[in-house]
Deep mutational scan, measured.
Amino acid sequence: GKMTGIVKWFNADKGFGFITPDDGSKDVFVHFSAIQNDGYKSLDEGQKVSFTIESGAKGPAAGNVTSL
């Protein structure tokens, strides 16, 4: 299901970062391709987001990332 969290950091040049889930679980990798907006796909440190957990090739990653 949907989770919420805070963006820990995001490197716009490399197109990835990490989200710290509100439930205290392990930080989740986020790739820019998972960001659900029409414009420039980037996130800001400290931004609140909702997301799902998808299993990627390198382990769990955030999917369906939407800013709240």
Rank of each mutant, 00 (worst) to 15 (best):
F16Q: 03
T4Y: 11
F29L: 04
K58I: 10
F18H: 03
W9I: 04
G56W: 09
S33F: 05
T4I: 11
Q36A: 14
Q47L: 07
P60T: 13
G39D: 08
G1K: 05
T4M: 10
K48S: 10
M3F: 13
S33Y: 05
S33V: 04
N11W: 11
D22C: 08
K14E: 05
I6V: 14
D23S: 08
I6Q: 09
S50K: 08
F16V: 06
D38A: 12
E54C: 05
T52C: 05
V65W: 00
K2Y: 15
Q36K: 12
Q47D: 14
T66E: 14
G63T: 15
D22W: 08
F18A: 03
I53K: 07
K41Y: 06
I19C: 01
I19Q: 00
T4L: 11
S67R: 14
K48Q: 10
G24N: 09
S55L: 14
I6G: 03
I35C: 04
K8M: 04
V7M: 03
V7Q: 00
A34T: 07
K26A: 14
S67F: 14
T20I: 15
N64K: 06
F18Y: 09
K2H: 13
D23E: 09
D22E: 08
A57N: 13
L43C: 03
G63M: 14
N11H: 10
S50T: 11
K58S: 14
F51A: 01
D44C: 09
V30A: 03
K58M: 13
N37F: 13
V49Y: 02
K2E: 13
G17C: 01
I19V: 04
T52N: 09
K2P: 15
G56E: 11
V7C: 04
L43S: 01
I19D: 00
T20C: 10
G24P: 03
K26N: 12
G5N: 00
A62P: 01
V30F: 14
K58L: 14
V30P: 00
P60L: 14
G1E: 15
Q47S: 11
G59S: 08
Q36T: 13
V7R: 00
A34R: 06
Q47C: 04
A62T: 02
F32M: 11
N64E: 12
A61S: 10
Q47M: 13
T52S: 09
K14W: 10
N64Q: 12
D23F: 07
K14A: 11
H31V: 03
K48Y: 12
E45R: 15
I19N: 00
F29N: 02
F29S: 02
P21A: 05
Q36C: 06
N11A: 10
Y40A: 12
A12C: 07
P60E: 10
G17M: 01
A57E: 12
V28E: 01
V30T: 03
F51P: 00
V30H: 00
S25T: 13
K8Q: 05
I6S: 09
Y40E: 13
V49P: 00
F29M: 03
G15Q: 04
A34C: 04
L68Y: 08
S42G: 13
F51D: 00
T4A: 06
K14D: 04
Q47F: 05
I35A: 03
G5S: 00
Q36P: 05
G56P: 04
S50L: 10
A61I: 14
N64V: 07
W9A: 03
V65Q: 01
S42V: 14
D27A: 07
D44H: 15
G59T: 04
G39Y: 09
F51C: 02
G39M: 10
V65E: 01
K14S: 07
K14Y: 09
W9Q: 03
S25W: 06
A57Y: 12
F51W: 02
F32D: 03
G46W: 05
A12L: 11
G56A: 11
G56F: 09
M3R: 08
A62M: 01
K48A: 12
F18K: 04
G5C: 01
I19R: 00
D22M: 10
T20H: 10
K58N: 14
S55V: 15
D22L: 10
H31W: 04
G5Y: 00
K8H: 09
I35M: 05
A34Y: 04
I53R: 08
F10G: 01
A61N: 11
V65I: 05
G46Q: 05
D13T: 15
I53G: 03
E54P: 02
M3T: 10
V65F: 01
T20A: 13
G1N: 10
S33E: 04
G46R: 06
D44F: 15
S33L: 10
T52Q: 07
S50F: 09
V65R: 01
F10H: 01
D13R: 15
V7G: 01
A34Q: 10
T66A: 10
P21I: 05
V65G: 01
L68H: 09
S33K: 11
V65M: 02
F29P: 03
F16N: 02
Q47P: 01
F32P: 02
M3W: 10
I35G: 02
S67C: 07
P21S: 05
E54K: 05
G5D: 00
K48M: 12
A57I: 15
N11I: 06
D38P: 13
A12I: 14
F29R: 03
K26L: 11
S67K: 14
G56C: 05
A62S: 03
K2A: 14
G1D: 15
N11V: 05
D38C: 08
E54Q: 10
V7D: 00
A34D: 07
K48W: 10
V7T: 04
A12F: 10
E54M: 11
G24F: 08
H31T: 04
S25H: 07
N64I: 08
T20M: 14
G56K: 09
W9V: 04
S42L: 12
T52H: 08
D44K: 15
D23A: 06
K48R: 15
G56M: 11
P60M: 13
K58H: 14
A61W: 15
G59K: 07
I35L: 10
E54H: 07
Y40P: 13
S50P: 00
G56N: 13
T52P: 00
L68T: 10
G63P: 02
V30Y: 04
D22Q: 07
N37L: 13
V49I: 05
P60K: 13
V65N: 01
G1W: 06
G15C: 03
I6T: 14
G15W: 03
F32W: 14
K58A: 13
E45D: 10
S50Y: 09
A57K: 14
A57F: 12
K2M: 15
F32H: 10
G1M: 10
T4S: 10
A62R: 01
D38N: 12
G59D: 04
A57G: 11
V49K: 00
K48I: 10
A62H: 01
G5F: 01
G24T: 05
G1L: 08
D13N: 13
K41W: 08
G1C: 07
E54G: 07
N64P: 02
L43R: 01
G46V: 02
F10Y: 12
A12D: 08
K26H: 12
N37E: 12
F10D: 00
I53L: 14
L43V: 05
E45T: 15
S33A: 08
P21N: 04
F10Q: 01
N64G: 08
D13Q: 14
